[in-house]
């Protein structure tokens, strides 16, 4: 049996909806295509990144060959040999472990202090003004001066902890405060009117709000923490530390070892930063999922 004719051709409407004559495709199909296109691009990016690394290592090899002195600039092969020699010893891993522990403890301490101060200064304008001078001083003072001062004040094994904390805290403070500042005014008014307890405000409003800012701050602060921590180790020479080994490499003019230890620090720092960035994207995806509303 023939049905009533449609008042218009729905396919035509869909074609018009694209506005440029291309056939209409539902969002799900377009999303699938976008995801496929992203997937096909990923190996290209990886290949290009690998090619970039190969290029710079090759350039380093050429430059080292031209210089011709291991003391001034060792070749990548010499550094690799030095790294392999070090990596088979238990002491290498113990040294890395202690540095990892010290600097990560410092970063964690600095992050904790930064987050608490960021929350406090973000919520209270008075405390923000009160703490601003000390934060400015901590941010502007050269890290070497602070390390030397710390050597006078505290035991040498804790100087890298202090330096890493001092470098990471201002980052987290600034990011957390920024997160608080970006909290929607509408929700602030709501919690104020409904007399929501400080604990519930923190749990329900501020923590979800500042979390992406905190993670982003952690990702950038880790690099600074590591640089300051290793510099502090070089200056304070604690027992079993990468910085101490770098210092010894300088004393014994062992440039390949200096490069090898530096490479180990870079690898550790990058791995940690990647871990934090991975956590950041996981949290961002979770929050995006929470914000997307259902239709009526």
């Amino acid at each position: 049996m023939d049905c009533c004719p449609l008042p218009f051709d729905s396919r035509l409407l869909k074609q018009r909806a694209t506005g440029d004559g291309r056939p209409y495709r539902p969002y799900s199909a377009r999303r699938k295509e976008m995801s496929v296109s992203h997937k096909t691009k990923a190996p290209k990016v990886a290949l290009l990144s690998l090619a970039a690394v190969v290029f710079w290592v090759a350039l380093w090899a050429v430059a080292a060959g031209r210089v011709g002195q291991e003391l001034l600039l060792p070749t990548p092969a010499q550094v690799w040999t030095s790294l392999r020699t070090l990596a088979v010893t238990a002491e290498f891993w113990q040294t890395l472990g202690w540095t990892l522990l010290r600097i990560n403890a410092g970063c964690a301490l600095g992050m904790g202090i930064g987050i608490v101060l960021g929350l406090v200064t973000g919520i209270s304008k008075t405390l923000d003004i009160f703490l601003r001078p000390i934060v400015s001083v901590a941010q502007s003072t050269p890290v070497a001066s602070l390390i030397i001062l710390a050597l006078v004040w505290i035991q040498k094994d804790f100087v890298p902890v202090f330096a890493a904390a001092l470098m990471t805290a201002p980052h987290l403070l600034a990011n957390t405060r920024q997160g608080i500042a970006e909290t929607p005014q509408e929700l602030r008014e709501m919690v104020q009117l409904y007399r929501v307890s400080p604990a519930n405000r923190l749990r329900g409003l501020y923590v979800p709000q500042v979390l992406p800012y905190v993670l982003s701050g952690c990702a950038s602060a880790i690099g600074f923490g590591w640089k300051a921590g290793v510099a502090a180790e070089v200056l304070s020479i604690p027992t079993k530390a990468v910085g101490t080994e770098i210092y010894h490499s300088k004393i014994y003019l062992d440039t390949p070892a200096l490069f090898a230890w530096t490479a180990a620090v870079i690898v550790l720092s990058v791995i940690l930063e990647r871990l934090v960035r991975w956590a950041l994207s996981a949290v961002a995806a979770r929050q995006q999922k929470q914000k997307g509303g259902a239709d009526d």
């Binding site: 929700l187 008014e189 709501m190 329900g204």
Partner: peptide, 15 residues
């Protein structure tokens, strides 16, 4: 003006 990260129950229970 609901808190996006918590349940409907918590959104009411905070008040």
């Amino acid at each position: 003006r609901l808190l996006p990260g918590v349940s409907a129950l918590t959104n009411v229970a905070i008040a």
